[in-house]
């Protein structure tokens, strides 16, 4: 038997061309490492991307790769996965690519539950086109196309995903190797469309936009790592917890020592709580990380083959099919 693959085996000869300090480097490293750890094979792995900084990703992974056109990666990936359901298909997209020009395809890939691992690099800005505000940019974002500050409401990717019918949604931070690695593995294990939103820092056009919860001094009080079956506690002293206030139908932060019995236990199959966790406003609440929602269901590629008359196999022949109608002979 061959030696197990390492992250180096998943690295191509191509020089990586992201800006120095870009969060994409960290993500690439965790992804290649995770591929090795989950025992992926290079020949049965395919990375499909759209257009944007993040979409250069396939060039740097030694597997099969397809750098498609703006916004269309989920559609190309769907065709690929339907044709060969044995493949591990990863989609790499960004907030502009996946939620603006390609919003429709992302929506339908999620609703159909195609077995794709969708990595949405969210940096809340258009990087490759030089810094315009994106559909996830916060109101007031100043950019070359919004010098007075953007006025449109940002989209919340997790709410979009769950609204579209996604059965798996997780969140991670580019530089959090452990947290990102864990959700990548969970996403891979989930059969169906899984969406991972990765907060990714754009050092050039939107630097430190996530600093409020990624700066070292803020991490413990502004992040909550969710683990299925574990109570939702956070804070430097693990002294805060999330509870559900039935009167306001909202999540509240409570003192973990005084109200231990009120603290919610994370149930990743609970869609209602998942939506509340995704929508928690900052900085009053911590940002929820980890697998926020996971509800197993048959993936599209499986139901498609099950419903197909011959499971996509050639069981008949054209000679007979041509004659499945009234025919007549002329002598």
């Amino acid at each position: 038997m061959n030696a197990p693959l390492t992250h180096k085996d998943f690295t191509t000869s191509q020089e990586v061309r992201w800006c120095p300090g870009c969060g994409d480097y960290a993500i690439l490293r965790v992804v290649t490492k995770t591929l090795a750890e989950i025992g992926a094979t290079r020949e049965n792995t395919a990375f499909v991307s759209g257009i944007g900084c993040s979409s250069r990703f396939p060039y740097y992974v030694e597997s099969y790769g397809f750098h498609t056109i703006h916004g269309r990666a989920p559609a190309v990936a769907t065709g690929l996965k339907l044709t060969n359901p044995e493949l591990d298909v990863w989609v790499v997209t960004g907030d502009g690519d996946g939620l603006s020009i390609g919003g429709n395809h992302l929506l339908h890939a999620l609703r159909r539950n195609v077995d794709l691992n969708i990595l949405l690099f969210n940096n809340e800005i258009y990087g490759l086109t030089k810094g315009q505000y994106s559909p996830t940019s916060r109101v007031g974002t100043r950019s070359p196309s919004s010098p007075g500050g953007s006025t449109d409401m940002p989209l919340v990717p997790g709410q979009f995903a769950i609204g579209a019918g996604s059965k798996f949604y997780a969140r991670a931070i580019d530089t959090d190797k452990v947290g990102l690695g864990e959700v990548l593995k969970a996403s891979h294990a989930h059969k169906g469309a899984s969406m991972i939103e990765i907060y990714q820092n754009c050092i050039v056009y939107n630097d430190n936009v996530f600093g409020g919860f990624t700066d070292k001094e803020n991490v413990k009080d502004s992040q909550i790592k969710l683990v299925h079956g574990e109570p939702m506690v956070f804070g430097a002293e693990q002294n805060k917890g999330l509870a559900f206030d039935i009167k306001t139908m909202a999540i509240t932060v409570v003192d973990a020592n005084k109200h231990a019995d009120e603290i919610l236990v994370h149930d990743e199959t609970n869609k209602v709580i998942a939506q509340l966790l995704i929508g928690m406003p900052r900085p009053q609440f911590p940002v929820a990380l980890g697998v926020i929602f996971h509800q197993p269901a048959d993936p599209f590629d499986k139901t498609y083959y099950n419903n197909h008359v011959s499971g996509m196999k050639r069981t008949g022949n054209i000679k007979d099919v041509l004659r499945k109608t009234t025919t007549w002979k002329v002598d």
Binding site: V48, Y64, F66, T68, I69, R72, A75, V76, A77, T78, G79, L80, K81, L82, T83, N84, L87, N104, H105, L107, H108
Partner: peptide, 17 residues
């Protein structure tokens, strides 16, 4: 597919496959 663009793109994905 969900639209004409997705139709051609998924056909391209199938061809790649």
């Amino acid at each position: 597919a969900e639209d004409e663009i997705a139709a051609v793109c998924s056909a391209i994905g199938a061809a790649f496959g």
